[in-house]
């Protein structure tokens, strides 16, 4: 029986979330929210270069948000969960889409960052958990004492440990790669494409990713170099 032979058509189509396109749209929206958080978080952190007092004041400001802070945290958590859940479902579907693999397979058009989304994602997730435990909860804080409220001290003490900084830098580079693909990909998934703007966006995604990565990495580098103590 062929495509063409009248076939049973009682199959009800998947809904929005059920379709791959719908899931990708959800990933785009959640990715966008997380991207905005990354920008805000970076701007906050860079205050370390101004003064210890300034950074600690910023920390207090966030804590004093009270319920609003928990709402923000809730939204971010939801975004992370949806982003990962969609990814996981798509990943398992995509594995099934090619049950027999190729003996030889070469890539002709995609970049390294494009192809590494599946593992840059989980590593960044592991890093985020570590990061929260180190600087928010303070449960992991090797070779020094975590002082609640003294953000400046915690950061400097934390990054003074070489392997913590190395792990941080490595993860941030992966985050950069993740953003480099994700930043323009979210537009594509939401169907926002433009013959002239899209190529510009692709270039911009690279530079935004580099800037963000450089911004974040500047902190542990400065600590290790002794510029921030």
């Amino acid at each position: 029986m062929s495509s063409a032979v009248a076939s049973p058509r009682d199959n009800r189509a998947p809904g929005f979330w059920g379709s791959t396109n719908g899931k990708k749209a959800v990933m785009a929206v959640t990715g966008c929210i997380l991207f905005l958080f990354i920008i805000g978080h970076l701007l906050g952190n860079l205050q370390i270069f101004e003064s210890a007092a300034r950074l600690n004041a910023y920390g207090r400001l966030l804590h004093n948000l009270g319920e609003l802070l928990w709402i923000i945290r809730g939204v971010l958590l939801l975004c992370v969960v949806l982003h990962i859940w969609a990814t996981f479902q798509l990943w398992s579907r995509n594995r099934e889409a090619r049950p027999v693999g190729y003996k030889v397979k070469k890539s002709v058009a995609s970049s390294y960052a494009d192809r590494t989304m599946y593992w840059s994602g989980p590593i960044v997730l592991a890093f985020v958990i570590f990061h929260l435990l180190e600087f928010t909860a303070g449960t992991i804080h090797p070779e020094s004492r975590f002082i609640p409220g003294d953000v400046y001290h915690n950061v400097v003490a934390g990054f003074s440990v070489w392997w913590v900084s190395a792990w941080y830098i490595f993860s941030l580079i992966l985050l950069g790669m993740h953003l480099r693909h994700g930043l323009w990909s979210m537009f594509q998934s939401l169907g926002l494409n433009h013959p002239r703007h899209t190529p510009v966006l692709k270039q911009a995604a690279l530079w935004i990713a580099i800037l963000i990565t450089a911004g974040y990495i500047s902190i542990p580098v400065s600590v290790l170099a002794g510029w921030v103590r």
């Binding site: 791959t20 396109n21 899931k23 990708k24 798509l90 579907r93 995509n94 099934e96 889409a97 090619r98 890539s107 002709v108 058009a109 995609s110 970049s111 494009d114 192809r115 989304m117 693909h181 323009w184 990909s185 594509q188 998934s189």
Partner: peptide, 8 residues
């Protein structure tokens, strides 16, 4: 499968 916008 789903599209990951990589352009292969």
């Amino acid at each position: 499968g789903s599209c990951t916008n990589i352009g292969e």
